[in-house]
């Protein structure tokens, strides 16, 4: 155990220390058109992602947190070009991902993968598990048909599945096992970068811990880089070196994990942290309960998007968009009062 923690600590340091960027996102915007009226004309935009920039360095695990509608999943998908972008750029290993041709992109796909949230809809119900895990290798010509099964079974074992699962169908597995299948499918390509889109939020607590441990083991062994998307701050704190907090398509705060959790600067981050129920009945905390609902991303508030719910809001917040500033220690925040 102690050995593990030393290794992991090194990992964490090298992640933020050596600073070799793998993914660079610059001013990324993704708007989904709203169609309406008799002729299905565009009547507005859902601003799912509205000008977000960040960099993920090699070997680090970057967490994105936020509530529903904050655009964190859209970022994950746009970043892998599963969606087209509206504006901005995504560079992977220095190449502009959204400018690649179809065949270049197909080649690039082997280096970046995604693990989905819903372990039920992320597997094709009519394809056997072994086949689902191995088909991409075959399709990209990375393995001969002869060696395919061995490769698949090897990967399945790494992910905690057994060889006799090879010929089973997805419906025969529990949620946790399906998530292992999803991870194996991503892992077999030997990617450098994995987007994990809420991989544990559909699972039970005891299974969540298994999957989180599996993912951190894999990261250590394969030197993976993660973009870990979650609504659960405690999971992100456990797994990530750096965390970005999003609200309505905008990055509100971004900092190394320890810095963010010991010294949250944005009132939204503070509220989010205090809203998480802690399994300790003796703990009496000063809780910040935010008033009101999350506004619709189709019609976000003016100025600072958080001002409608912010306990500190004043006139300037309604009018001016706060600047996204570096407060030192790699700690960025977008708030007038930070």
């Amino acid at each position: 155990m102690s050995e593990t923690s030393v290794q992991s600590e090194q990992q964490r340091n090298s992640g933020s220390g050596s600073l070799q960027p793998l993914v660079q996102v610059e001013n990324l915007k993704k708007y989904f058109p709203i169609m309406g009226g008799v002729f299905q004309r565009k009547v507005g935009d859902v601003k799912a992602v509205d000008g977000v920039s960040f960099t993920i360095n090699k070997g680090e695990s970057f967490g994105l947190v936020g509530e529903s509608g904050c655009g964190k999943s859209t970022i994950g998908r746009t970043l892998l070009r599963l969606n087209d972008k509206t504006e901005g750029s995504v560079h992977f290993e220095g190449k502009d991902l959204h400018a690649l041709s179809k065949s270049e992109l197909r080649h690039m796909r082997t280096k970046m993968q995604i693990v989905f949230q819903d372990p039920f809809s992320s597997l094709n119900p009519r394809i056997k598990v072994g086949e689902a895990i191995g088909e991409a290798l075959l399709d990209h010509g990375l393995v001969s048909r002869k060696d395919l099964k061995d490769r698949v079974i090897e990967t399945m074992k790494i992910c905690g599945l057994a060889d006799y699962h090879y010929d089973r169908f997805p419906h025969e597995f529990s949620g946790g096992q399906r998530q292992r299948i999803g991870i194996a499918r991503a892992l077999i390509m030997d990617p450098e970068f994995i987007v994990a889109d809420e991989p544990v939020s559909a699972l039970d607590v005891s299974i969540q811990a298994q999957i989180i441990n599996l993912m951190s083991d894999l990261q250590r062994e394969k030197q993976l880089t993660y973009l870990f998307i979650s609504h659960d701050l405690s999971v992100v704190e456990h797994l990530c070196n750096r965390v970005g907090v999003m609200y309505l398509g905008t990055m509100m705060e971004m900092a190394p994990t320890d810095e963010l959790f010991s010294n949250p600067l944005h009132p939204y981050t503070k509220a989010l942290m205090s809203a998480i129920p802690v399994p300790d009945p003796t703990l009496k905390r000063e809780r910040i309960v935010l008033q009101g609902d999350i506004p619709s991303p189709a019609n976000p508030p003016s100025g600072c998007k958080f001002h409608t719910r912010c306990p500190m809001a004043s006139d300037i917040c309604k009018e001016q968009v706060p600047e996204y500033r570096n407060m030192g220690n790699e700690h960025f925040v977008a708030c007038h009062f930070a």
């Binding site: 998908r77 991409a136 991503a186």
Partner: peptide, 25 residues
């Protein structure tokens, strides 16, 4: 469905997507 997004993320060929993933369903 997410499994079709997965086939895109895995960079599978169109023919494989149509004949092995979509048609059987």
């Amino acid at each position: 469905q997410e499994f079709m997004q997965a086939t895109e993320a895995l960079g599978l060929r169109d023919s494989r997507k149509i004949f092995l993933h979509l048609m059987p369903n």
